[in-house]
Design a protein around this nucleic acid. Structure first.
Lengths: 269, 269
DNA sequence: TATCATGTTCCATATAGTGGAACAAAATTT
DNA sequence: AAATTTTGTTCCACTATATGGAACATGATA
């Protein structure tokens, strides 16, 4: 994980777009973040490129399949990205090691189970096992959320040493998603010391109203990668008591995943 | 969809890597296709770049989060791609329109339902609804498969006009995945005329032994995008008779998706 | 038809990528 | 332990590629 702070915001996104690639990726991001296809002029006003330049950049991205153009000449993210990403996901060792454990955790709790990795001060969800009962909700996989208001995020942060923690927390812009959202570094730090003490983290409607979870951290042996798993459910069904009851199970599953990873890594490949 | 054939192979992948971006994307592809993390030298031997150049290219990709380096200095696809791709997936209008129909089809058949779009001569799977009974298999989403040996692919191809069809079929390299795989353009064309006649396609273990499906084509109103849906199951459970019985349902679902798309698109946004 | 907004192409210039070679660091052999 | 090979990183003159202003299209609106 990258500890270099210069030019990198707390959310992990780059600041100064350097080089040809940087500019193109920034464009990709711009289009991906929009909530629909964008017309040339929309992009023009958001990027600060001259028209000729922008036009060529977009053309190149389209040529490579990273962007697509719909019949209205509007740009949207291309399927090539989906293909690239899916391969990486399918072959991700961490994810595949964790999978059976997530499944088991789901079988016991009957609630949604998440696996996420820490990236800067964000959590990126790598996998989830959904409750059969729930309607199929917006797929979380690949989604990046702030670490400070998610169970997985706080669990993962709790596994950092203080120096590293301080660096990552430094640049967080605390956004009050709900009334329960932690409001500043102080609140986050004290929550994290709680998490360290007991070994698991809660998210009690801190990111989204009506959504709660328990989460436990996963340390890779070398501390190079931090992750977490969580059991999540709607507040009307999942009480603090049930979360509390599940905590040991979540911690145990996290530990098992750690063990499996160590064993898998062991026979130096 | 791109009808330009020069420099584009039948499988849809580009031939001549032009420009800075092209070379970098080719590298990404190379790493994504490998079945594990790659060391610098591995990549060096596969790409035909000089060492200095390759090193800088990789560094740039890593800087942008498109690649990552593990503790052993090996390269693998970065999570940034997953995040980008997931956004595109979640906001894909086609996918979201189709979703309830896929779900319904699954509820009736209790087998796996797929949605895929045609891209050149490949099918890219956009969504799937899995059987509860089956173990969670390798996720197909984002995966690209040859059109000529998949139900969705043949269904989508059948919706093309002859000229377009000829162009796409021209460069296909027919690979005999199983004994049932169509072996050449002639076999494919005659199969497709069958599909056109009856309105739906079968895949009887043509791509993977023991896997069968029925599929129906989805035409977007302007013919700009072609897709298909299928109901897939293991041969021991799914007989040709059950496939035959499901065919009208699949066709009906495909038609409904088309209608919904048309309505959604209608109010010119 | 005239006008304005939007999208595309061109080309001299500046910039960023290139690749050979030299350097550094491990891993392996002697 | 020294020598050798294999692997990874840095440097810099050179050149391919991206840049961006302006001119050219296209299409929508008045």
């Amino acid at each position: 994980m990258d500890l270099n702070t210069e030019g990198v915001k707390a959310n992990g996104r780059r600041d100064r777009e350097t080089g040809t690639l940087g500019k193109l990726v920034a464009l990709l991001d711009l289009v991906a973040l929009a909530d629909g296809p964008m017309r040339f002029t929309d992009i023009l006003s958001l990027s600060d490129q001259p028209r000729g330049t922008l036009h060529r950049q977009l053309s190149h991205l389209v040529e490579e399949g990273l962007l697509e153009v719909d019949r209205g000449g509007r740009y949207l993210i291309g399927l090539r990205l989906l293909t690239l990403a899916s391969r990486s996901w399918a072959r991700n060792e961490f994810r595949s090691v964790a999978e059976p454990h997530l499944q088991r955790l789901h079988d016991v709790t009957c609630e949604t189970v998440h696996l996420g990795v820490l990236h800067g001060a964000e959590v990126i969800y790598l996998d989830k096992v959904e409750g059969r009962q729930s309607i199929r909700m917006y797929s979380q996989i690949g989604n990046a959320s702030p670490a400070y208001c998610t169970g997985v995020g706080k669990a993962a942060l709790s596994a950092l040493d203080d120096a590293d923690l301080a660096i990552r927390i430094a640049g967080i812009g605390f956004h009050p998603y709900t009334e329960q959202t932690l409001r500043n570094a102080g609140e986050l730090l004290s929550d994290i010391s709680e998490v360290r003490r007991r070994g698991y983290a809660f998210d009690l409607e801190e990111h989204e109203r009506g959504i709660c979870c328990v989460a436990a951290p996963i340390r890779s042996d070398d501390g190079h990668m931090l992750a977490g798993i969580s059991v999540t459910g709607p507040a009307y069904r999942v009480t603090p008591q049930s979360l509390q009851a599940w905590a040991p199970l979540v911690v145990a599953a996290a530990d098992s995943i750690m063990m499996d990873m160590r064993n898998r890594m062991g026979p130096k490949r």
